[in-house]
């Protein structure tokens, strides 16, 4: 469904600060894939997401969605079929607007016209949807989002993304800024929505056991390359130890595990 062809990205090209963030990455994402991506800082995970969603173009290579070359399409155009959630819970919602206004904006992707769609029926629908979150938000639809906690905002962002039914969802460490309890809740909601709507998903995580536990396919990135790509039975058999060992076999050096292993959030 989504194909990445020979993607590479060089930042600050032709300057002393030149960095190669992605090195000829090719990847085929099949419909229904739930891919978890791990890798240490600077491995190129977020750069990969930025190129898929169109924040900036790749230096080389192409991005295809359903066979269509979207490499040069601007971010807002691609956003119609890509749902993205960032680490920062503030990025998904508009603080100084009410919950229902936020949900209305996210209900349908693409340019908005002069229709007034937020009517009683819509509000009732949003209330039912909010009920799924089990956070008592259905009684706070007229509150500004700024009054919610980070976990509530991230859950709301997740819900709004699910309602808009994108073809691909990109989760960029979306639970990393939350406290452990809320992170757990948001992650549970994430898997619930992915299962219910069969979303094709890519999820970046810093946490190895999380990457192993969730998803149908696992990618490990290092220095701008995908060094490991496992799925199916092979993925089910993975353990953290096996993963660290594999990294060592491939890269002939030890995996910088501290941060990855110690970030003990589940």
């Amino acid at each position: 469904m989504i194909r990445l062809e020979n993607l590479s990205k060089i930042f600050n090209e032709d300057t002393p600060n030149e960095t190669l963030a992605l090195r000829y990455i090719s990847l085929d994402i099949k419909e229904g894939d739930f891919i978890t991506i791990i890798g240490s800082n600077g491995a190129g995970k977020t750069t990969l997401f930025n190129i898929i969603s169109g924040t900036y173009p790749p230096t080389e290579g192409r991005v295809f969605i359903d066979g269509q070359d979207v490499t040069r399409h601007p971010e807002y155009k691609r956003a119609r079929y890509i749902g993205r959630i960032f680490q920062d819970p503030l990025l998904g919602t508009a603080s100084n607007m009410t919950l229902e206004d936020n949900m209305m904006i996210c209900y349908k992707k693409g340019f908005k016209g002069l229709r007034i769609s937020l009517n009683h029926k819509m509000k009732e629908f949003f209330r039912e949807q909010l009920d799924q979150l089990d956070m008592d938000l259905d009684n706070r639809m007229k509150d500004n989002v700024v009054l919610l906690s980070g976990g509530q905002r991230q859950a709301l962002t997740l819900l709004m993304m699910a309602i808009s039914k994108p073809k691909l969802i990109l989760l960029d460490e979306h639970t990393a800024a939350l406290d452990p309890k809320n992170a757990q809740i948001v992650l549970a909601l994430t898997t619930h929505f992915i299962r219910e709507y069969r979303f094709t998903t890519m999820m970046i995580t810093h946490n190895m056991s999380q990457a192993i536990k969730y998803g149908t396919r696992l990618l490990m990135m290092d220095k701008g390359e995908i060094i490991l790509d496992v799925e199916g039975e092979e993925k089910k058999d993975l353990t953290v130890d096996k993963l660290v060992k594999k990294f060592h076999e491939i890269r002939k050096r030890t995996f910088e595990t501290d941060e990855v292993l110690l970030s003990g959030r589940t």
């Binding site: 603080s95 607007m97 349908k108 340019f111 908005k112 007034i116 937020l118």
Partner: peptide, 28 residues
Amino acid sequence: LFFHTDLGLTLGALGNNEQMVITQGVNP
């Protein structure tokens, strides 16, 4: 009335959070 329409609401979001508007597939 205008700020109750879908377009008006989206304008409201723009000042709050431009990334959100882009994520919703609207050209800021």
